[in-house]
Amino acid sequence: MSQGLNRIALATLAFVLAAVWGLPFLYSIWTAFHPEKYSANFVWNAPLTLSNFTEAWKAAPFALYFLNTVILITTVLVANLILCTLVAYAFVRYRFRWAGILFSFVMVQLLISPEILIVENYLTLSTIGLTDTIIGIALPYLTSAFGIFLLRQTFMTVPKSLDEAAQIEGASAWRVLWTVYVPLARPVYLAYGLVSISFHWNNFLWPLIVTNSPEVRPVTVGLSVFATVESGIEWSLVNAATLMTTAPLIIAFLIFQRQFVANFMRTGIK
């Protein structure tokens, strides 16, 4: 009896916490889908509208911002997948002097990440003339210690007999990598890809520092510029723009919810 009551109390607590947690986001949705005069006025039959979205879309070059973000995350992802694979392969398959020290040297990036080195990295970019370019935003992130760590852990679990069998058949180092190691690490590539995409889609401070012109701005920077430049801007437009710029991620999450959660868990557990 008291067990049942406890359960009901806990279920209520869970429901209340989830509802409170959802409030800020739901409020933003309410405002985005209603005319300005209902933005802080809850009437159940208030008319729904999409005009906030169309107006926000016309007020700033969001299509361009989206394109820039897609170029940015593709560049970073492709470079990460290739470069991290190469380094991890070297650490797992070969023996060379100072391998241990070199590995800890690489892992330093986990702690001292590009986010806190904005001052000097900006100076480096201006020296080589790459400020205000998409490649400039991507450069500090092209090799990732996290990716190297993850792939090294995975490559270490590949059975040596497979590698040796491939060698006996005369496969070169590149062929062994491509036909033995890479296929076996496919789930890790997927997991890493999802984490990398969501990180770089969301990244803000560094792109804000590096970019000046709308032609290279990613979505996050574009959104913040849109929401602050015109100070008299309506809240309904800001909320519509906020939802619009995050919609691809939210929709992707709703579709791949199960995989997303599983992959976040996999990358979290070392």
Binding site: S28, N202, T220, L223, N239, A241, T242, T246, L249
Partner: peptide, 10 residues
């Protein structure tokens, strides 16, 4: 899942 910028706006 949301970018911190979007969270900040919300």
């Amino acid at each position: 899942m949301l970018p911190m910028v979007a969270v900040a706006n919300i």
